[in-house]
Design a protein around this nucleic acid. Sequence first.
DNA 1: ACAAAAACCGACCGACCGGTCCAGAACCAC
DNA 2: GTGGTTCTGGACCGGTCGGTCGGTTTTTGT
Lengths: 207, 207
Amino acid sequence: MTTESTSTDSARTSKWELRRQTIIDTSARVFARQGYHATGIMELCAANDLGKGALYHYIGSKEELLAGIHDRVMDEVMLGADRVAATGGEASQQLAMLGDELLDVIHRYPDHVWVFLHEFPALTGERAEQFRVRRQRYERQIEGVLRDGVKSGEFSDIDPWLTARAWLGMHNYTYLWLKPGGRLTARSVAKPFADIFMRGLLATDER
Amino acid sequence: MTTESTSTDSARTSKWELRRQTIIDTSARVFARQGYHATGIMELCAANDLGKGALYHYIGSKEELLAGIHDRVMDEVMLGADRVAATGGEASQQLAMLGDELLDVIHRYPDHVWVFLHEFPALTGERAEQFRVRRQRYERQIEGVLRDGVKSGEFSDIDPWLTARAWLGMHNYTYLWLKPGGRLTARSVAKPFADIFMRGLLATDER
DNA sequence: ACAAAAACCGACCGACCGGTCCAGAACCAC
DNA sequence: GTGGTTCTGGACCGGTCGGTCGGTTTTTGT
């Protein structure tokens, strides 16, 4: 009562929050390797070097842990998207920047993204709904940039919705092979991807 | 001895094979909705209107059922790829045809493809290896077409491996929203996708 | 008509599931 | 020290898991 308590009662020490985050990150790797449902609580305990009681002291439930992984990804993605929106510029530049940001997240959090893209149907109830809304908001932003580009005449008269799906697929799908430590950096992928999407494959002297 | 027996002993009546296929198809829908590990054997029994004994009379194990779903998809995809290779033509035409074929499979087997893209890590042992090989063979074919296009000068000097990943992502990712009965047909998506990939978004008067 | 084969059922199995609970250890302010 | 809070382990819970098995029904061949 006397001290803070944001609104929910989930006010814990920062040490607790920090430990919780490491648990989420460690568990993400296990989920990514074996799948959410295929991973038992005891395996998570082993991975985090914790007993059951201790683990449940930090996570409320297995699904809450899954939600934590999703949030981590979405927070980063939305942050990047906001940064781009704040920068402004032509549609093609915006799209290129969005690609940079997205691939950067995928490159930095490959396990979280894997879980995010594979296990999001395992979220239930309000968590599922909240997640759906955030994801849709991001996708709408991509569509918006495309619509702007068409309107301004920078882009040809493409279907913004369909083109957004093409763009999202092209970038999201990199989660299968874009890993830190590999020979490829986020930037070294984002650049050629943007080139393809803007100019296409055909040699310039044709058409 | 007197009659046929291809090579393996898995020679059953065609009625049995047919029933097995319908079970695979029905189960694919359940797996797609709930996930492989999250689906119990009893749910599969209910979906197929069968008891446990009867179900296991057709599938050897849960994983064998999963493998059946994977095979169904891969068979169709490889068949389409072979058709395209047999047709021949310029690289850009080949790529467009491959897109047509791939999206057609995704459109016709949305559940199988969902399972295929989400649950392939659940395959183990030899089944996993065989699957990995087939998938790689397909992806190599895409790369090959791109390499040909670069060599012939039809395409600009792009990285075939990276560009293949872009193409695969753009097309495979449609499994999330491309469904039969919807307003979109495979062709009505494949065409604009091919246009983007060949010519890009930028209006022609620029650059 | 009748026996062999195929199709089918559900009770049952040991193992493991996610989650709870509580007693004790470690850490804190004082 | 001392009393309270945070943190930790592991025994334990009911339930469900994938899979088996013996036996019954249905289909098939002749």
